[in-house]
Design a protein around this nucleic acid. Structure first.
Lengths: 210, 210
DNA sequence: GTCTATATACAGATAGAC
DNA sequence: GTCTATCTGTATATAGAC
């Protein structure tokens, strides 16, 4: 299944925008299979025919919807934004922004649906991966490369370490949160968690040699 | 949706076993919505009526199938199994077993489906979480508690650190692998990756104070 | 271009024969 | 208990009116 652009390229088509907005609601609420084109049309206050004028199939509408959603949350920050802060403070800010995004209700629902449909929509999974994990990883990698140049960290492969850092931030809590079993923590609790994680990340857990 | 036991409690019912085996194949291959009871019946070489004698609905069959699958992969190891090894070697062995499990084709497919259906089947998500992440986390936590008692690691909360360690093992590669975009690495490459991750985990990444 | 109404297909669940 | 055949609902996609 190719990712197809809507038939009309006009991004100022107001019907198209309403359809995409409705589709986002419906797909994020019900998932791919349980969503119906009928409901999308009703929510967009249009008829199904109108929807099918813009998108040739349910699959195409789904792909366009998720891709649009992924691109909406583009890059989080530039590497230079945090250069003036002490290392642990910079990592805390980066981590806070990152978790705000990945633990937002929309991102969580999108992740669940993309995972569930990854076999059927590999191109959608690819876009989610590229715009989410990879792009963010690159931004953080640039920060880590600069941190290494400034002598703040001592690692062989700062890009690798940066990507691992992102995953470490999500940590164990993400296992329950991504499955919808636990609520994302409020900001204060989340920052306490982040400090703990970042502390171990920076200093390691091994006992100092006796 | 409650998780219902099959109507017949007899675990030696051969038809029941064939139905569960067929259901596992069909659900893991197609996901919940795209799977059909017809196909399950055909694969089990039984009629749909027979399937409905054992399970009252498609939902019940799905829940029973995933739960059975989760419970099949129970605990990975006992904490004591690795006590005799040097710390980094023990962590390498633990990590290898863990990644063998979570990056197996069956576990990856199960994870995708459970994520996708988490909103509709929270009890299934709960079982997946408990038998997967939590149970494994507890086993590793016992190892870390012992490691702390033996003075090998210096952390406040060894159970917390253990759970974070598990997530760190999956690391960035898991982002692409869980979406089906990258293949799990072969054993040698995986071990090289693990050594890198475990090294940073133990020693931290911060530059030593000048 | 947009709508109502419909063709077509498929899947979950069951009735009734044996 | 098991099977064949079927009922019923629903969803994608489209034909035809305006």
């Amino acid at each position: 299944m190719r990712i197809e652009a809507p038939r009309t390229a006009d991004s100022h088509d107001p019907k198209l925008q309403k359809i995409l907005a409705a589709a986002k609601e419906v797909f994020l609420e019900h998932g791919y299979a349980a969503a119906s084109m009928d409901l999308v049309a009703r929510r967009a206050k249009a008829s199904k025919t109108t929807v099918y004028t813009r998108f040739p199939s349910k699959e195409a509408l789904f792909a366009a919807t998720i891709v649009t959603e992924c691109e909406r949350h583009g890059m989080l920050f530039r590497a230079e934004d945090f250069d003036h802060l002490p290392l642990d403070e910079a990592l805390l800010r980066i981590g806070g922004r990152f978790l705000d995004l990945v633990w937002s209700p929309e991102a969580l629902r999108t992740h669940r649906i993309v995972m569930g449909e990854a076999a059927r929509f590999p191109e959608v999974a690819r876009v989610f991966y590229d715009t989410g994990f990879v792009q963010t990883g690159e931004a953080v990698a640039r920060f880590f490369v600069r941190a290494k140049e400034r002598g703040l960290i001592a690692v062989d492969d700062p890009a690798f370490t940066a990507r691992q850092f992102l995953v470490t931030l999500k940590g164990f809590p993400d296992c329950g949160i991504s499955l919808g079993l636990c609520e994302p923590p409020p900001a204060a609790e989340r920052d306490a968690y982040l400090r703990k994680v970042i502390g171990e990340f920076l200093r390691g857990v091994a006992a100092p040699p006796a």
